[in-house]
Simulated assay, not measured.
Amino acid sequence: MANILAIDTSTAWCSVALSLDGQAPILRHESVSAGASQLILPWVEELLHSSNSSLKALDAIAVGIGPGAFTGVRLAVATAQGLGISHALAILPVISLDAIAAQLVRTTTFKKRAVNYFAIAIDARMDEIYWAKYERPVNDSDLAKRLGDIHLCKPEDIDLHEIHFLAGSALDAYGSRIFTNAPAPFSETALDREIQLSALGLLDCGQQMLLNGRQCDVRDLEPLYVRDKVAFTTLERQAAVKP
């Protein structure tokens, strides 16, 4: 397997993982809110040092390109660009929901459910969610296949037809609103409210992307912006709280 460094700061968590020569990956993953910019490079150095390795030994960098927090996504992309240019490394741009799906299919909770199709839904703030549908992998070592694009909508407008398992932060953020138009009730055993994006999911996706030749030149790396509008204006916030 390839030597890959994975970094993600698209959420309130700063997440860095390193996989070398097929060994078990090592991970640094902590909730840091707005402090990721001060930690991301020291954590990269820490993981490389603890593995007696260096950036020169890497084959590629996997980076979370979103969707997610606007500033956080830009931070991860800029960090990957800097490291990639300075050491001539290939870049593996990983979509955040794909990384969560990669993690989900390896969990015991998901494996116990004999479902072919599932969805990932995460809180997009501004009373909206990002979501996508996936097909269960045939083999445990494979990745889930995303069916279509990443969507942005109100929680009530998610399409759950033919979906029998749902995971992501949108569940706790919006509760029953997610199931407003669901064709059938979801039991708690068909939900994963706890799963969160981490650099381990990026590693899984990155290994497969590199194997399939889907790396990109560092100069072509860009964030994935599903939403054009990234924040409410002051007047919009005031209007939202009026009785």
Score class of each variant (00 low, 15 high):
Asn181Tyr: 10
Thr107Met: 06
Glu194Met: 11
Phe70Ser: 05
His87Ile: 12
Ile26Arg: 12
Lys242Cys: 03
Ala12Arg: 15
Leu104Thr: 02
Arg125Phe: 02
Glu194Gly: 11
Val16Phe: 09
Ile178Trp: 09
Thr233Asn: 06
Glu222His: 02
Thr71Pro: 01
Leu147Ile: 15
Phe179Asp: 13
Ser198His: 05
Leu75Gly: 10
Ser15Lys: 13
Val226Phe: 04
Phe118Trp: 00
Ala34Gly: 13
Ser33Arg: 13
Ile85Leu: 05
Gly72His: 08
Asp217Gly: 09
Ala231Glu: 00
Ile4Ser: 07
Ala144Phe: 10
Ala2Val: 10
Phe165Gly: 08
Leu55His: 06
Ser96Ala: 09
Leu39Glu: 08
Ser86Thr: 10
Ile7Tyr: 06
Pro25Thr: 07
His151Cys: 05
Gly66Ile: 13
Glu128Phe: 08
Ile150Leu: 05
Gly201Tyr: 13
Gln103Phe: 06
Ala199Thr: 02
Gly213Val: 06
Lys242Met: 07
Glu194Ser: 14
Glu30Val: 12
Leu55Arg: 01
Ile150Asn: 04
Asp220Arg: 01
Lys242Val: 12
Ile40Ser: 01
His164Asp: 02
Val226Ile: 10
Asp140Glu: 14
His49Tyr: 08
Asp59Ile: 09
Arg227Gly: 01
Ser31Lys: 15
Val32His: 10
Gly68Glu: 10
Leu75Tyr: 11
Val115His: 05
Met209Val: 05
Ala60Phe: 11
Asp140Phe: 14
Val77Gly: 13
Leu89Ile: 10
Ile65His: 06
Ala24Thr: 00
Phe232Gln: 09
Ala121Asp: 04
Val94Gln: 09
Arg214Phe: 01
Leu39Pro: 03
Cys153Ser: 08
Ser37Asn: 13
Phe165Pro: 02
Ala60Trp: 11
Thr233Lys: 05
Ala190Val: 12
Lys229Val: 03
Leu47Ala: 01
Ala6Tyr: 03
Ala80Cys: 03
Lys229Asn: 04
Ile163Pro: 02
Asp172His: 01
Arg219Asn: 15
Pro155Arg: 09
Leu166Met: 01
Leu97Glu: 05
Gln38Met: 08
Leu48Met: 15
Arg214Ala: 05
Ser15Phe: 06
Asp172Val: 07
Ser169Asp: 14
Leu27Ile: 13
Ser176Pro: 00
Ile120Asp: 03
Asp98Cys: 03
Met126Tyr: 09
Glu162Gln: 07
Asn139Asp: 14
Ser96Leu: 04
Met209His: 04
Glu135Pro: 11
Glu194Phe: 11
Pro42Lys: 00
Trp43Phe: 07
Ile65Tyr: 00
Ser187Met: 04
Ala167Arg: 06
Cys153Tyr: 07
Trp43Asp: 08
Val16Ile: 13
Glu45Phe: 02
Ser33Trp: 11
Asp149Lys: 15
Phe70Arg: 06
Leu48Gln: 14
Gly168His: 01
Glu156Asp: 12
Asp217Ser: 11
Leu235Asp: 15
Tyr174Ile: 15
Ser187Thr: 13
Ala90Arg: 14
Pro25Asn: 09
Ile65Met: 10
Ile61Val: 06
